[in-house]
Lab assay of single mutants.
Amino acid sequence: MFKRLMMVALLVIAPLSAATAADQTNPYKLMDEAAQKTFDRLKNEQPQIRANPDYLRTIVDQELLPYVQVKYAGALVLGQYYKSATPAQREAYFAAFREYLKQAYGQALAMYHGQTYQIAPEQPLGDKTIVPIRVTIIDPNGRPPVRLDFQWRKNSQTGNWQAYDMIAEGVSMITTKQNEWGTLLRTKGIDGLTAQLKSISQQKITLEEKK
Rank of each mutant, 00 (worst) to 15 (best):
A9L: 15
L197K: 01
Q103R: 07
P53F: 04
R57H: 15
Q24H: 12
Q69L: 01
K102A: 15
T206K: 13
Y28A: 08
Q36V: 10
A14K: 12
V68K: 01
P132W: 01
E33D: 11
G142E: 05
R186C: 04
P53A: 12
K3V: 02
L207I: 15
A18S: 13
A88D: 13
I13S: 04
L10Y: 07
K29I: 15
T176V: 06
A73S: 08
T20G: 13
G106K: 00
G126I: 06
I119S: 08
A73K: 02
Y100C: 13
D32L: 06
L11P: 02
A18I: 15
T58D: 09
D165S: 04
L78G: 01
W161K: 01
R153M: 01
S84R: 11
Q196R: 11
A110S: 13
W152F: 05
A88F: 09
Q162V: 03
L207A: 15
F2W: 09
L185S: 10
A163Q: 15
E99W: 06
T58I: 10
Q162G: 06
M7A: 03
W181K: 10
L109N: 08
F150S: 09
L184H: 04
D54Y: 11
Y72R: 00
L184C: 12
D40M: 14
Y112H: 04
D165K: 00
L197R: 02
Q48V: 11
P144H: 06
G189K: 05
S17H: 06
Q69R: 02
A22W: 08
Q118R: 13
A120R: 15
R90L: 05
Y105M: 02
G189Y: 03
A195C: 13
R147T: 03
Y81T: 08
I174L: 15
D139I: 15
A18E: 13
D61H: 06
Y100W: 12
D61T: 05
P144K: 08
G79T: 02
T194Y: 04
I130M: 09
A120H: 12
G182H: 12
L184S: 10
N179Y: 10
I13P: 00
D191T: 07
I59F: 03
V8S: 04
A168R: 01
A104S: 11
L5C: 03
P66I: 03
V131T: 10
L184A: 10
L78A: 03
T58L: 08
N179T: 12
L184Q: 07
G79P: 00
A120P: 11
Q89A: 12
R147L: 04
W152C: 09
Y55S: 11
A110C: 15
L76T: 03
Q80V: 11
T129L: 09
F150N: 03
Q107M: 13
I200K: 04
Y28H: 08
A9C: 14
F150L: 04
F97E: 05
T158D: 03
K83D: 01
Q157D: 02
G114R: 06
T25Q: 12
V135A: 04
D23H: 10
L65E: 12
D139V: 11
K71R: 09
E63D: 08
K83G: 07
V8T: 06
F94H: 13
S199F: 05
I174G: 10
P132S: 10
Q89R: 04
